[in-house]
Amino acid sequence: MNEQISTLRTPTHRFFVPLSPTRRGARLARLLAAEQLRSWELPLDPARLIVAELVANAALHGRVPGRSFRLTLSVTAPRLLRIEVTDARGDHPPALGTSADVPAESGYGLLLVETLADRWGVQRGPVPCKTVWAELDLPAAAVCDADPHG
């Protein structure tokens, strides 16, 4: 995990949506993310796999009754996709699964995120929230011709 926040640039495209921290909310987040990536003419994978893991974690581990989680996708120049999932459990940082020698009950999905993402990390705050983020360097052929506000 990268504890440092990468250098943020002004997004050329940005999409965000609040969702309920339920399995249904996580499913909707996956569907909306895939549709947004298609509309921006970006490759679906590995981004949708990362989204799936981060929103599943928000629904399972970041759940606070009455509070939603937020999925944010943004594209910045030059060719960077940032995926962020913000939940209301800033007191509950994500944990990576351990090696096969020391089994853990959860955290293996974040190993997938670590493998697929070019960078990822956790940003705490504003209280009581945390944001788990991942970045993908997009291929040179990836072009976003969609509305920058869509």
Rank of each mutant, 00 (worst) to 15 (best):
Y108A: 12
A77T: 08
L73I: 00
G125C: 15
R124Y: 12
D118F: 05
Y108K: 07
P78A: 05
V75E: 08
S106T: 13
L96P: 01
D101Y: 14
P103Q: 09
L112T: 02
G125S: 11
S106R: 13
R82G: 02
V132K: 03
S99K: 10
P93V: 15
A77E: 11
Q123R: 11
S74I: 10
Q123L: 13
T86I: 13
K130H: 08
L80R: 11
D101W: 14
T131F: 03
L80M: 10
D91K: 13
S106Q: 14
V113M: 09
D118W: 06
S74K: 11
K130W: 04
P103I: 06
L96A: 14
C129A: 12
L81S: 13
P93I: 04
D118S: 09
D91P: 01
L116H: 06
V132C: 11
R79P: 00
A104M: 15
G125Q: 14
T76H: 14
R79K: 15
T98E: 10
V127D: 10
L112D: 01
E105M: 07
I83K: 10
R79H: 07
V113Q: 02
Q123F: 06
R119I: 01
L80K: 08
S99L: 00
G107F: 15
P93R: 15
V132M: 10
V75W: 11
A88Q: 03
E84D: 07
A95L: 10
T131D: 00
H92A: 10
I83M: 03
G109V: 00
P126D: 09
V75F: 14
L110F: 08
V75G: 04
G121W: 02
L112K: 10
H92R: 04
V127K: 15
G121Q: 00
L73C: 12
P93S: 05
E114W: 13
T86E: 02
A104D: 08
I83Q: 02
V102H: 03
D87M: 09
L111R: 09
L96I: 06
I83D: 00
E105W: 09
R119E: 01
A100M: 11
D118V: 05
L81G: 05
L80H: 08
S106M: 15
A100Y: 07
Q123E: 09
R124M: 12
L111A: 01
G107L: 09
Q123I: 08
P78R: 05
K130M: 11
G90E: 00
L111Y: 02
I83W: 09
R89T: 00
Y108N: 05
V113L: 06
G125F: 15
P128A: 08
P103R: 06
T76R: 07
L116V: 06
G109E: 01
A95P: 04
A104E: 13
L80E: 08
W120H: 01
A88K: 02
E114V: 07
I83A: 08
P94V: 09
E84P: 06
V102K: 04
V85A: 09
A95T: 14
T76W: 12
D87I: 10
S74Y: 03
A88S: 07
R79T: 11
V75R: 11
P128D: 01
W120Q: 13
D101A: 11
T98M: 14
G109I: 02
A95H: 07
A77K: 14
L81W: 03
V127E: 14
R89N: 04
V127F: 15
R79I: 00
A104N: 11
A117C: 01
D91Y: 07
L81Q: 05
